[in-house]
């Protein structure tokens, strides 16, 4: 059975289908990564259209709280085994948005991140390097973020709810707005 798992991991490392969540400014680094100059397809990485099909969720940069909600929904729609790549310093510590009220600072608190790509911006070489790193991690069986998410589901949910509460509107009805004015 373990040989079978090793074989499966070998194939998983060589065929990583990617869903890129492109709200951040880092999205601009992806077209050169995909196309002729850097060509990520040679590592078996292909962009995919929906979370159902994808293995990797690539978060390109900062996430506002509202978009985090979508990211969590998308992440939960993906099938295991699945991995998250945090791209750019925004996903690590907030980057230049470190003091913004509406942007999350550490992605790791809300969904498990398997690999960060540091830099603002990381170059396409760094992205390609991350794919190779992720392949090694999968081969060694260390990239187990999706299992961590299931194990610590309550913790992640609590963290998520804490910030999602902020997205609910303060004023419920339009009448209240006119009254207060």
């Amino acid at each position: 059975m373990s040989e079978w798992k090793e074989l499966a991991d070998y194939f998983r490392g060589r065929s990583m289908w990617m869903l890129h969540y492109c709200t951040g400014c880092g999205a601009i680094e992806l077209p050169p990564t995909m196309t002729s100059r850097w060509d990520m397809e040679r590592f078996g990485v292909v962009p995919m259209a929906t979370p159902r099909q994808a293995d990797i969720l690539l978060i390109t940069g900062y996430l506002s709280i509202k978009s985090l909600k979508r990211v969590v929904y998308t992440y939960e729609q993906m099938s295991a085994p699945k991995w998250v790549l945090g791209f750019g310093s925004c996903t690590i510590n907030g980057g230049i948005y470190w003091d913004s009220y509406s942007v999350i600072k550490r992605l790791d608190k809300y969904i498990p991140v398997d690999l960060y790509i540091a830099g603002c911006m990381p170059r396409p070489e760094a992205i390609l390097d991350s794919f190779v790193k992720l392949r090694e991690l999968i081969k060694k069986g260390e990239a187990k973020g999706y299992e961590k998410y299931v194990k610590n589901f309550e913790w992640y949910k609590a963290n998520q709810d804490k910030v999602f509460r902020r997205t609910t509107p303060v004023l419920k009805k339009p009448e209240e707005v006119t009254k207060s004015a």
Binding site: R12, E41, S79
Partner: peptide, 23 residues
């Protein structure tokens, strides 16, 4: 496209991966 491209057996790898993935 003037790219290097994946190995010719890439689709075998893809299929094996897909069958080993949850759904």
């Amino acid at each position: 496209h003037r790219r290097y491209g994946p190995p010719a057996i890439q689709n075998f790898i893809d299929v094996f991966k897909l069958f080993s993935k949850n759904s």
